[in-house]
C-alpha cells in the first residue's frame, strides 16, 4: 500500500524513463501507468523524453518503408562479393537429402 502511494506520488525521472521505455514493449500495470502520467504532469523533461523516443521509433519505421520501396541508398554488393556468392551458389547444386 505504502509502496503504491509512494510510486504514484514520488516517482523519480530515472524510474519514469525506465517505465516509459517499458511501455513501448508491453502494457504497463495500471499503477505504473498512472505513476508515469502523474509524474509527466510536472516534469517537462520526461514528457519530452517520451515524445522524442516515440519520434525516433516512427522515424525508423519510416526509413524501413522507404527502403522497402525504393533503392534509396544505392547500397550494392561489391562486384567481388557478387561473384563470390554466385560461385558459391553454382557450386552447391540443390541436393535431395543424401
Amino acid at each position: 500500500m505504502w509502496r503504491s502511494i509512494k510510486m504514484l506520488l514520488a516517482l523519480k525521472c530515472d524510474e519514469s524513463t525506465r517505465l516509459v521505455s517499458q511501455s513501448l514493449d508491453q502494457n504497463l500495470p495500471t499503477l505504473e501507468r498512472w505513476a508515469v502520467r502523474l509524474h509527466a504532469i510536472s516534469c517537462r523533461s520526461c514528457r519530452r523524453f517520451r515524445h522524442q523516443t516515440m519520434l525516433i521509433r516512427s522515424a525508423i519505421q519510416q526509413r524501413l518503408d522507404v527502403e522497402s520501396v525504393t533503392d534509396v541508398e544505392r547500397t550494392r554488393l561489391s562486384d567481388e562479393a557478387s561473384s563470390r556468392i554466385a560461385t558459391a551458389v553454382a557450386e552447391n547444386p540443390s541436393k535431395d537429402s543424401s
Binding site: 525521472c13 517537462r44 520526461c46 519530452r48 519520434l55 519510416q62
Partner: peptide, 29 residues
C-alpha cells in the same frame, strides 16, 4: 543521465520543428 536524487542531470531539450520535419532525409539516416 541522472543525479543521486533520480533527476535529470541535463534537462531534455525541445527539438525544433524544422529538425523533426527533416527526419526523413538521407542526412538524418
Amino acid at each position: 543521465f541522472f543525479d543521486k536524487h533520480g533527476h535529470w542531470k541535463n534537462k531534455v531539450a525541445s527539438w525544433p520543428r524544422s529538425t523533426t520535419e527533416s527526419m526523413s532525409a538521407g542526412d538524418f539516416w
